[in-house]
């Protein structure tokens, strides 16, 4: 079953097209990373899935429930971590839990207590006294404590130190061990996605330009490096996003066997990171 289905989603802010007919689906049991440059539409897409952005057209379904016609029921299936902490500063974590308990019928007090314990957070701590990392940990604990079928995380790790980031990613990984769950993870920190994402949606100009699975990336894609004298004529469809420098070029290919056959040992093929794919596929072509 798909935990998320987005169909033809459009959103304009005046003349600015934020989402231009986005189609996207995520099956249960998988983590999808959303990556792209600033202004690509990642946060707008996350906002639309959370019901925060009033879409112009198109539809969003969470675990089979239409977000527009059944918003409360659909959002019961959703957990979320926003780009910044939006908890009420004057409340304690415990008071915030009281509110969340009344919001989510499937709220799991023991799971929340375990996560607080794991993140070394006290329910008596006021939100305004927490550091950025602590606030994010609290938000993650809240997102993962009501058996959500889809968890949407919008830039949760930006500005956090590596220890906090590792903690959060581990918690998400463990959450995914239960059946029927999926995570959408929007970020600029592509190394986080290298660790946990099963799929990556590369966004640019309000569209999903590429949707790649980890298997695709491992079996078909490669980061290509070659010297300045290598003749690339006729390789337009084979090498993508060629970036030239004084000592040669880099590019990516989605047909690494063909690329290896075409260029032979003159072309070095490496396993690409997600950052390599973003830089070469979303940067507007050759340089």
């Amino acid at each position: 079953m798909n935990v998320l289905e987005v169909e033809g989603l459009r959103k304009n802010y005046g003349r600015v097209v934020a989402l231009d007919g986005v189609d996207l689906a995520l099956e249960e049991g998988y983590v999808m990373g959303l990556v792209g440059p600033n202004g690509a539409g990642k946060t707008t897409l996350a906002g639309a899935v959370l019901g925060l952005v009033a879409q112009d057209s198109g539809g969003v379904r969470i675990a089979g429930l239409d977000l527009k016609s059944r918003p409360a029921a659909a959002k019961e299936k959703l957990g979320f971590v926003l780009d910044e902490c939006r908890l009420v500063a004057s409340l304690t974590i415990g008071e915030t839990e009281t509110i969340l308990r009344s919001a989510y019928p499937r709220w799991d007090r023991r799971a929340f207590a375990r996560l607080l314990d794991r993140f070394k957070l006290s329910p008596k701590a006021k939100v305004k006294t927490l550091s950025k990392g602590m606030k994010t940990r609290a938000s993650v604990a809240m997102a993962l404590s009501h058996r959500a079928e889809l968890v949407v995380m919008d830039e949760p790790t930006s500005g956090l130190d590596p220890i906090v980031r590792r903690d959060l990613l581990d918690a998400v990984g463990e959450y995914m061990e239960a059946e029927g769950r999926g995570v959408v993870f929007s970020t600029h920190v592509t190394s986080d996605l290298d660790r946990i994402a099963d799929y990556v949606a590369l966004m640019e100009g309000g569209k999903v330009r590429y949707r790649l699975s980890r298997t695709d990336i491992e079996t078909s894609w490669a980061l290509c490096k070659g010297g300045p004298d290598l003749d690339l004529s006729g390789a337009d469809g084979l090498l993508m996003g060629v970036r030239r420098g004084p000592y040669g070029f880099t590019a990516v290919t989605g047909r690494k066997t063909d690329a290896a056959a075409r260029f032979g040992p003159a072309l070095v093929l490496e396993r690409p990171g997600i950052e390599d794919l973003v830089v070469h596929l979303l940067d507007g072509g050759s340089r």
Binding site: G51, E84, R86, Y104
Partner: peptide
């Protein structure tokens, strides 16, 4: 602190 954003994402 724009807390409405948080509460509107709840059910």
């Amino acid at each position: 602190g724009e807390t409405q954003k948080f509460f509107m994402a709840l059910p």
